[in-house]
Write a protein that binds this DNA or RNA. Structure first.
Lengths: 106, 106
DNA sequence: TGAACGTGTGAACACATATTCATATATCAG
DNA sequence: CTGATATATGAATATGTGTTCACACGTTCA
């Protein structure tokens, strides 16, 4: 059982966490993740479904890969991406709750 | 009981979520929040404890206020900030778990 | 081998963002 | 009112980031 480190963040740990949140701080990346949460998808399908050009998708997938959010595998000419992190869905849902929370404040 | 909206994110909702994550995507802001999670704190103390100049702290507190993460109250010359969102701690902890997850991959 | 297709990558550009400096505003003490 | 203190704010600057374009690379198929 992992003991979560609580208490004040030092600069180094804060920077690490900031990287994680920054990775989720872009609408295109969130939409890619949202599609991938429904299942493995290849790059061209991701581009089509998000109405984003293929190069932009590739760039953003690299960001997600570097953060350990997704992984990929080649199958012929296609490369399929998949979620490779168990916390993304939770982060999604908490952030959604926050947005509802905001609604109710206004 | 709130029904969480799942499934694919449209652009508008994705942008909203991205704002939330962007707000957490900065080490200075995360450290401020981390201190505030321990209790209400005034601006000058926040600046001192993060070794950040007062103006920068004020700017970042404004960002956090605009996102609904914190609120404040004046007491004499001081202004005390406090956490005003129930999801921040959860987001913190999930992101921490993700960072441990990353460690174990390398 | 060569053409077609899917994907990755570097450069360039436009735009966003964090920090600093100077200064404004608000409150309090005298 | 005056000066001191706490905080906010706008402008300037440096740095980061997302997208596009052009092209490279790898795979398949004929």
């Amino acid at each position: 059982m992992r003991q979560i480190t609580r208490g004040r963040l030092d600069l180094e740990r804060a920077s690490l966490l900031a990287e994680t949140f920054k990775g989720l701080g872009d609408a295109t990346r969130l939409r890619l993740l949202s599609i991938l949460l429904e299942g493995e998808t290849c790059v061209s399908d991701l581009a089509e479904q998000t109405e984003t050009n293929q190069s932009a998708v590739s760039h953003q997938l690299r960001v997600l890969r570097n953060l350990g959010f997704v992984s990929n595998r080649r199958e012929g000419k296609n490369i399929y991406y998949q979620i490779d992190d168990e916390h993304i869905e939770g982060l999604f849902n908490l952030a959604l709750e926050h947005s509802y929370h905001l609604d109710s404040k206004e």
